Simulated assay, not measured.
Amino acid sequence: MIQIITAAEIDRHKDLMEQAWRLRHKIFVEEMGWSAIARDDKREIDEFDDEYAIHLLALEDDAVVGYSRLLPTVRPYVLSTHLPQLCEMEPPHSPHIVEWSRIGVAGSVRTSGRRLNPTALSILTAIVEWGLPRGLKGFVSEMPTSWLLRLLQLHIHALPLGLPQMIDDVEIVAVNAGFDARSLRQLQTLRGTTDSVLVPECRGVARLAS
């Protein structure tokens, strides 16, 4: 299941967020080698973990096994602030588009092969399921170029914002990805169920921060 936590709810979910910060450090610092963001306390937290950030936590028996973050694009975000060179035009700026970043799953739930990891699939399904009733129409993200085809296969309209560039020895492209009800149906088909991926408390509709 996917737990969605806003800044206002972090105090209520301190234990889960502590796991999330440490999972981020494990993935991005210890495994991927992003030494510039290393911290002695082994918690990866950056300038964008503010009152506007939305955290998506994949849970298995109260353990956080996957994570990603959504940021509003009407404010400075990772692509517009730190990676504008990936865009050949102005980075997207819309109340209906979020940035999807800090995407990772724990080693215990990683899979091999060409199929999309089930935990990652649940997180992406959560973005679409949670986002559609809140007026979201898509996301921007910086990702390996190999992900482009996967998004299209999921009926998510992914368009490059510029040419790929090598970042930390990985070919990365910025995309503007649109989704709709067809995307959700395709994601549910691949998961083999129309059951919600969200924990019950996250299924109501609340107004997004702007």
Rank of each mutant, 00 (worst) to 15 (best):
I4A: 02
I5Y: 13
T6M: 02
T6C: 08
A7E: 03
H13E: 08
D15K: 14
D15N: 12
L16H: 13
L23H: 13
L23G: 12
R24Q: 10
I27T: 08
M32A: 12
A36N: 03
D41A: 06
K42A: 13
E44S: 06
E44L: 07
E44A: 06
E47F: 04
A53W: 01
H55M: 04
L57E: 09
L57A: 15
D62L: 07
S68Q: 14
S68L: 15
L70P: 04
L71N: 13
T73W: 11
R75W: 04
S80V: 07
T81F: 09
C87R: 00
C87E: 08
E90L: 08
P92I: 12
P92D: 10
P95I: 11
P95A: 14
I97M: 13
R102F: 07
V109A: 11
T111A: 08
G113L: 09
G113C: 12
R115G: 01
P118R: 11
I123W: 00
L124M: 15
V128M: 09
G131D: 11
L136G: 09
S141N: 09
E142L: 14
M143I: 14
L149H: 09
L151Q: 11
Q153D: 14
Q153H: 04
Q153Y: 03
L154F: 12
I156M: 15
A158G: 09
A158I: 05
P160N: 05
P164Q: 15
Q165W: 07
I167R: 13
I167V: 11
V173K: 07
V175S: 05
N176R: 10
G178T: 06
F179N: 05
D180E: 04
D180A: 12
R182V: 02
S183H: 06
L184Y: 09
L184T: 08
Q186P: 00
T189E: 13
T189F: 14
G192W: 02
T194K: 05
T194F: 03
S196Y: 03
S196C: 05
V199Y: 06
P200S: 13
C202R: 12
R203I: 05
G204I: 05
